[in-house]
Write a protein that binds this DNA or RNA. Structure first.
Lengths: 328, 328
DNA sequence: CTGAAAGCGCTTACAG
DNA sequence: CTGAAAGCGCTTACAG
């Protein structure tokens, strides 16, 4: 079963490959008789013709692949959903998503030089050097920033805002002695530190003492130890802002182990609104992220980077939202 | 910044492109002077040469991309981990993973014909028609079966075994009146139905009455309704085998809402051992899947399909394992 | 309005 | 041991 090429379509429809190309690519500026066009289209359909991506890429120097570079830490359900949306949205524009796990040992440079993607989308910050090299090669790079960033080709998901939102909610509920439950995995520090910074700044804004910080792993022991520390001293903690929902669930388990009531003794708020957050005991208050909106923004950014005629999307300001449940 | 080509390397090292190709591809059967080889290697490194994947693909008719086709339902953390492992493992063999979400509107046929992957890996069963077409085009297809399957190019994760394992564990704990908590999402039925079949068969084997089945969504209401139904009648259910951990957590929430104690009144067992399973109240007993082993198997299958000299891996028989915690 | 020809970068028979 | 040449399938100036 040799591949069906444009030459086959040309032969089948009795025209040249040039004409086939013009018809199939809807080249404007060139006028093709309706009859000819139809003949080509029919032949292509009859033969089941699909243009070779490799040949196209070789010719144009640019493939239809969007290289999505993942962070090197465990991706959670959030990034999962994000990629899923991206894949389907970009597919509608004839673009395929190639996922590169940051953990892979192959260098990023080798990969992008090999596949010549039409755009690169980083879900974690790139090394400046990589960004420059790709830009120099003419490949649009859409990056992610964890802080506020005005560049349209940088998608900013300001992590500090998340921490601030958590504190605002806890203060509203009357809490003044706060703690921050950091993740135990160091690779998350880029996120965790910024969320903590947001928590700290918000505490200061509200005139509260600095939050007490402890690392909490996804196990009861580690959470229990943190809870004990938080409850000790003159002013025991009455509310915990957790790095994310999983950490929050660990905190809940730790509080349970210590016989403390939630939210009466200690309130807990997470981040992400994972599907099981509402199933916790008690149901977990959390920060919901508009993943769909983020994915759409990212897809639009890529599309805008690809075509100067497409206006870059404006940063969605309202991506975070408190979901209040019984844990606060 | 035009691309560095093999011609540049040839010029730089004073040899022909043929020689460059021979050196860089470690072509055996051809002997190259050590001096020449070194000169070529140095020039390539100095210039930062990376062969064009497009040109290679066009030439050989086969790319270095492994197309991984996802199911059209929400992928959970399990598949997430799986893809991650695959990406890194295959990267070590110079292969890149291209993820195609089953949900995308573009047809699978168009995608594989366009990118000419060196292999296709289906994480959900393919339509026979698709499989045939790819095989006919000479593309090795590694599939996934949800039942026992002897074909080496089919990875079987016999779902019925999972259900059986759940029942065995519950029976060991002395339960005789069992229920099965099915997921509310219809797209999961390929998995859910087989796990249920395993539960049913095991009940029969143990001489128990047929399990009572109810669909449970990821919310307390739906779980509460299921629990009520299960507890009604002459012989109230005392143990629940859930489709997966998330559903199990919902069941736990339903039992809590009904004021039932776990495991004294009703025991619950899930599947997957998600990170938060051990944080539940009470910690959830579940079936652990050896994802790493599965990923390794899949990667090895792909590699074997690519190279006849590589022996296909033998099916890992021991991929499931009960993790007993306090919920049973 | 349509066709012949060149060239993207690579590898591999085929000659030397 | 090394080089000149062809060809993978496509698109696009350039001619007609």
């Amino acid at each position: 079963m040799p591949r069906v090429t444009s030459a086959d379509v040309a032969r089948e429809s009795g025209v040249s490959r040039t004409t086939v190309s013009y018809v199939l690519n809807a080249k404007d500026g060139v006028v093709i008789t309706d009859a000819t066009r139809q003949r080509v289209l029919d032949a292509a359909a009859r033969l089941g013709y699909t243009p070779s991506a490799a040949a196209r890429t070789l010719r144009s120097g640019r493939s239809d692949l969007v290289l999505v570079v993942l962070p090197d830490w465990t991706v959670g359900p959030v990034i999962d959903t994000l990629i899923d949306h991206l894949t389907t949205t970009l597919a509608d524009h004839g673009l395929s998503v190639l996922v590169h796990s940051g953990r892979g040992k192959g260098s990023l440079a080798d990969l992008w030089r090999a596949v010549t993607p039409c755009a690169v989308l980083g879900l974690a910050p790139f090394a400046d050097e990589d960004t420059y090299a790709m830009r120099r090669a003419g490949i649009p790079v859409v990056g992610t920033a964890l802080d506020e960033d005005p560049h349209p080709e940088i998608f900013s998901v300001p992590q500090t805002n998340i921490g601030a939102l958590q504190v605002d909610h806890l203060v509203e509920r009357g809490h003044r002695a706060l703690a921050y439950a950091a993740p135990a995995d160091d690779r998350l520090s880029a996120f965790a530190d910024r969320r903590l910074a947001g928590v700290q700044a918000a505490c200061q804004d509200h005139g509260l003492p600095a939050p007490r910080v402890a690392a909490v792993g996804l196990d009861v022991e580690s959470a229990t130890a943190a809870v004990r520390a938080w409850r000790s001293g003159d002013e025991p903690v009455t509310a915990v802002a957790a790095y994310n929902d999983e950490v929050a669930l660990a905190v809940l388990a730790g509080l349970r182990a210590e016989g403390l009531r939630v939210p009466d003794d200690v309130a807990v708020i997470g981040v992400d609104d994972i599907p099981t957050a509402k199933l916790a005991a008690p149901p977990l208050t959390t920060i919901w992220q508009a993943i769909d909106a983020q994915a759409s923004y990212l897809a639009a950014s890529v599309l805008a980077a690809l075509d100067p005629a497409v206006r870059p999307p404006s940063q969605t300001s309202d991506v975070f939202h408190v979901v209040a449940r019984e844990s606060t």
